[in-house]
Design a binder for these strands. Structure first.
Lengths: 234, 234
DNA sequence: ACCTGAACACCGTTCAAGT
DNA sequence: ACCTGAACACCGTTCAAGT
């Protein structure tokens, strides 16, 4: 009891004391403002006014740090969801929540795409599974569908994050897509007729909307495929 | 003419001459046998019996090297496809071709997931687009569907590659999935009911089959969604 | 023109030495 | 127990010097 009070008091007073939370918080700030390549233990230590070795008392490795930072963001997404939605709307809400988080923190996209077995993806997969159950999708199809949704999101996560990485200063995403469109337009017409034809619509298209179109596509496939199973739902 | 002959003769005789092709070939060997982390310019130079600086006369950077290596593998996949298939079967064939390539060369999965704007993904996206056109999916839906298929594959690419990375010596993929299943089984029952219930089927499931189930799901969604557009196909 | 390999400018991580 | 910061063991990349 007395120990608890003492600990609390100390934490209140010495706000400069190092902790995993403070380190993760500082890491997120660096990642958000200066990009993924700016996060080094030296830069982190400098920002926290400590030695680089001190960080290892609270964080096991750089990977551990990035995992914790990603977890922080994704947890925020999942807890911010409105409960009691219709299953299809709930799935869209989860997907859009992750999309918006990656839009706000592109390094989260890199993390999710690169380390998809980390804890942060589990709440997302769990959310999909629960909503699919509510939709009446059961048995092996439930896991297949949840995985399909997750894979789709992870793929886009990598794509989005890579786009930001290639931008490297160009703040406008439309400008980036225009560059890609130019490259597609120069492709060999014999080999790449589809991409050449699709190029013009690339800069104009809304990433978020196209993302949602993909989710809806998978949902439509789920509805079409699981018709037989759905009847046994209730 | 004389110059051409001389060049050809030289190329035939001096098989030890450095070239981008030889460098890429050696890099693929290292990546396949010793893993992604084993590919360094020093190791590559040692294998090619040259100095590390010499490599930069034929390769712009490590990224350039990895891009070229990925291109090599994906080109092999796409040219190996049987032409004239039914569109749905052709899409499955492309997807499975990429899957098998990642299975054989996990570093390709890392590359695709990490740099999805590289040239190697274009033939895949083009293939999807062409087959969707043959299916009668036109307009914006054609690009949305092709993107959805691509995103799904890129997501799985990252997941698969990350799994191999975590294995780090464990040759058996089933063993890896069993480890994941154990972790899922220990999750909080209140928060993760779906994952806990799904855990047992994780080690038993066939990656390739589940991958194909996801593709079929998207295809079903495409069929269900594009009904109105399909009539205008022919 | 191509190759050599030491040198440079970084990394993440460790560890003796301090408090 | 926690912090310090130099040192270690690497990287990718560059570049003067060779052929």
């Amino acid at each position: 009891m007395v120990v608890m009070v003492t600990k609390t008091k100390r934490a209140e007073r010495r706000t400069d004391a190092l902790s995993k939370e403070r380190i993760v918080e500082a890491a997120i700030e660096i990642l958000d403002t200066d990009g993924e390549s700016a996060l080094t233990f030296r830069a982190l230590a400098a920002r926290l006014a400590t030695g680089s070795g001190a960080l290892y008392h609270h964080v096991a490795s750089k990977n551990d740090l990035l995992t914790a930072a990603t977890e922080e963001v994704i947890t925020g997404v999942m807890t911010g969801l409105a409960p009691g939605d219709e299953p299809r709307a709930a799935i869209q809400a989860i997907a859009l929540g992750v999309f918006d988080a990656i839009d706000a923190h592109p390094w989260v996209g890199t993390q999710l795409a690169q380390e998809p077995w980390q804890f942060a993806v589990l709440p997302v997969l769990e959310g999909f599974g629960q909503q699919l159950q509510a939709l009446g999708v059961l048995g092996p199809a439930q896991f297949d569908c949840a995985s399909a949704l997750l894979n789709y999101i992870l793929g886009l996560a990598g794509q989005y994050a890579a786009g930001v990485r290639l931008l490297a200063g160009v703040t406008d995403r439309t400008a980036f897509l225009a560059t890609v469109a130019d490259r597609w337009a120069d492709l060999d017409p014999a080999r790449f007729p589809f991409l050449r034809q699709a190029a013009p619509q690339l800069p104009a298209h809304d990433d978020r909307e196209q993302f949602l179109a993909g989710i809806d596509l998978i949902l439509a496939g789920i509805t079409a495929t699981s018709g037989s199973r759905r009847s046994s739902a209730r």
